[in-house]
């Protein structure tokens, strides 16, 4: 078992490489799912607030100003 973790003396390089990759894999899934949930929540909020047409108008008004 400790043989496995020492990786023939390359543990110092091998495990960080795997850790970095794992981190990227996890973070990308996490942020993607969080983004989707946030977008869903935002869309729901707009539905509850109703009248998306007025929201439209205020949006474009803002855009003209900026």
């Amino acid at each position: 078992m400790s043989d496995f973790f020492s990786m023939g003396g390359y543990a110092m390089f091998l495990w960080p490489a795997y850790a970095v990759t794992l981190l990227a894999i996890v973070i990308n899934v996490y942020t993607a799912r969080r983004d989707l949930q946030q977008a869903r929540a935002e869309a729901r909020r707009r539905l509850v607030a109703g009248r998306p047409s007025t929201a439209d108008a205020s949006d474009s008004a803002l855009r003209v100003q900026s």
């Binding site: 993607a32 799912r33 977008a39 869309a43 539905l47 998306p52 929201a55």
Partner: peptide, 23 residues
């Protein structure tokens, strides 16, 4: 695919199909 769905929701936030989709 997940990011695309979030992106589409953000871009289409005023479209009527979202009502059907989320309720």
């Amino acid at each position: 695919l997940i990011r695309l769905r979030a992106e589409i929701l953000r871009r289409e936030r005023n479209a009527s199909w979202i009502r059907e989709e989320l309720t």
